[in-house]
Design a binder for these strands. Sequence first.
RNA 1: GCCGGUGUGAUGGAAUUGGUAGACGUACCGCACUCAAAAUGCGGCGGAGUAAUCCGUGCCGGUUCGAGUCCGGCCACCGGCACCA
Length: 804
Amino acid sequence: MKYNFAAIEKKWQNYWQEHKTYAAVTGSEKPKYYALIEFPYPSGEGLHVGHPRPYTALDIVARKRRMQGYNVLFPIGYDAFGLPTENYAIKNHMHPREVTKRNIARFSSQLHMLGFSFDWDRCVDTTDPKYYKWTQWIFLQMFQHGLAYKTKMPVNWCTSCKCVLANEEVVNGVCERCGSEVIRKEKSQWMLAITKYAQRLLDDLDDLDYIERVKTQQRNWIGRSTGAEVKFATTAGDEMVVFTTRPDTLFGATYMVMAPEHALVEKWADRLTNLDEVRAYQESAARKSDFERTELAKEKTGVELQGVRAVNPVTGAEIPIFLSDYVLASYGTGAIMAVPGHDQRDWDFAKAFGLPIVEVVAGGDITQEAFVAKDDSAKMVNSGFLDGMTVKDAIPTMIRWLEGKGLGKEMVNYKLRDWVFSRQRYWGEPIPLVYCEKCGWDPPPGDQLPLTLPDVESYEPTDDGESPLSKMTDWVNTTCPHCGGPAKRETDTMPQWAGSSWYFLRYMDPHNDEALVGKDAVNYWHQVDWYNGGMEHTTLHLLYSRFCHKFLYDIGVVPTKEPYAKRTSHGMILGEGGEKMSKSRGNVVNPNDIVAEFGADTLRLYIMFIGDFEKAAPWNATAVKGCKRFLDRVWNLAEKPAQGDAYTPANEKEIHRTIQKVGEDIENMKFNTAIAAMMSLVNRFYEHAPSRGDLKALLTLLSPFAPHICEELWQLQGLEGLCSQQPWPEFDPAKTVDSEKEIAVQVNGKLRSTVVVPMDAEDSAVVAAACADEKIARLMEGMTLVKTIVVKNKLVNLILKPAK
RNA sequence: GCCGGUGUGAUGGAAUUGGUAGACGUACCGCACUCAAAAUGCGGCGGAGUAAUCCGUGCCGGUUCGAGUCCGGCCACCGGCACCA
């Protein structure tokens, strides 16, 4: 009989679904294991061949854990709010809800087709009111705990999406999603105070089992720097507060710079003799997009605030104050002390504006460029009481001096900004707050959640920058829950990342209407044991969800500080030419086509065999055949019942080794070499006919990778139960070793021959065997053996010198 | 500019972490089966050389009995951050 993959795969998928073979059981006596993949955004295009890579990898892990006796939670769901769906709906005059429904149905059937062992009863959909009730609930909790606040601020505005973006969503000055220009716009926005968690998000990384590049990327994004806050007196009376990482260079501060948006400018407006010039500069800076600001980075621009001067607290000198957009309003205090001798940006500005440059750290040539010492052992000069000290000592000395005078203190700053949490679009969770002129912001009357998304006539984004919901006056106008007076609902919706910040908790208890997750469930499942996802989410979803989880920990909803114990990441599947797969390049491979031609098991196998799991790998249409051939060979070996449940002596050692190799490789995500090992075993079975016991071992090892064919062959062998429910096979280390070993013989470090010696042979015996070798004996003629190096069971190196 | 990563046959990639470079697969070549082709099975496959041998893991140098692996200096490509004081 031929290997009829289509029929076999259908048969077993139906069987698993009917029997709920992969259902997770909350409260089971077995040890629990929670394996998680990032739930997909159900786009209109359906799955492409990149999706199954992480899915298959963790499916393999989940299946192996089940065989190892764990109660496994391996769930799936849909992150379905978001712009692509909304844009599609607008274009095709459909309701986003309908588009979402259709896309989810398509994704579901494709995921079923690939035979993943998801617990489908736990499927979630972020756009389901029963789900987003709890997304809204979390937001309200944050609001009530002072972590959500509304403020008018310059935000990133995508000119095409007509929507605000988080910093994390702006890439090289353009919209991460559509690539359009992003400009700065003053808007009143809901914010989440993720910065309050910056230190914890940083510290707790240390104990997590995340791959290193994820940790460093998050650390860089959080961007902690230590230094001091310093107060400068001004001739206007107000203090100017700056942040600096180099308080040791205070003697070299020859001027001050404030961000163009700095609040003191307004306060000092009356005193400024060049107010028109200042206003003009402010306006030109405000008009610049982020992109332009960074583009023009080389040329420093600015304007002096004439009429007010600052006083350097250590030199007592009056120094000028400038506005310049190289100082960012959103970092530190929005103002700096400029030390042109030792900061290149300050140096550039000082040169452009003819300002004095003073050397306070010795070792460079400040007439040529700013001197930024590579280490902190450089010596202070022109710095009064710091003279002669190293930079290392001068920093704390200066901080203590400032503290003593009440002029400053030690200070920590982060690059991380608060999370802009409103979007002016329709297809998102409504923010459940109402505004009353008298009472301010409050949860809606009756505090009833979910606050469902009303149907509107048009989903089009508006040109005035307001959400489409703002046009729904019936819905917008409501009553104040405090005073009963007229109030208005918030019309912005939440960003895409809201629903995905906590979905892993919902999987633990997806049908609970009383709580976002029940105590029993969360105490049982605890946290995700292994989470795999894309690097592109490192500073977005992954950081947001850690923040969200820490907040839920603080209010007692979850028992762990961190959501994910382990985080790994997969490389992208590229098109045949090594370029990214995309519709416009026309190089997208549709998994349906591969499944139709070769079957799901072949696709799963190939996508895991394609290369190093962590690295990008180009798709190769002809190489898929190799995996199909392998399964054909397995089929031909095992389709007819074999005899004998013991391992065949000829195959035994190879089987034990393969069990060890496959088991270890799965744990280390080296799926490609695990498959190579099984291919080798099958090649051996073609030389030495396998017993039924040999085949059992092969089928159980292979079943996490290619579950359908293994289940079928298990049955054809007349074996009991399901292959996928067998215990994971054990290996005996003693049976993996050879009795004899071929070792390399080197002469003066070069490979010259090989000899076979008994395992663990004595060094002297190895040397003797080597010298007895014909080729070696020839090389030794007329030479003296001066030294031998023996590496047990590996090689022997003979050092020879010409005999004199 | 700063921080990561990568560089191995025609090709995707292996290499017990300093110990026989190229496992496994693809492509290609040969043989068997076939009228023939496909499929399948078996064998070959880094380069040069008839051979003995020599050369070979981006480039240059070093450490070592021994380097794809460690160190120093370059080059190329990929990713992240980027006027963060």
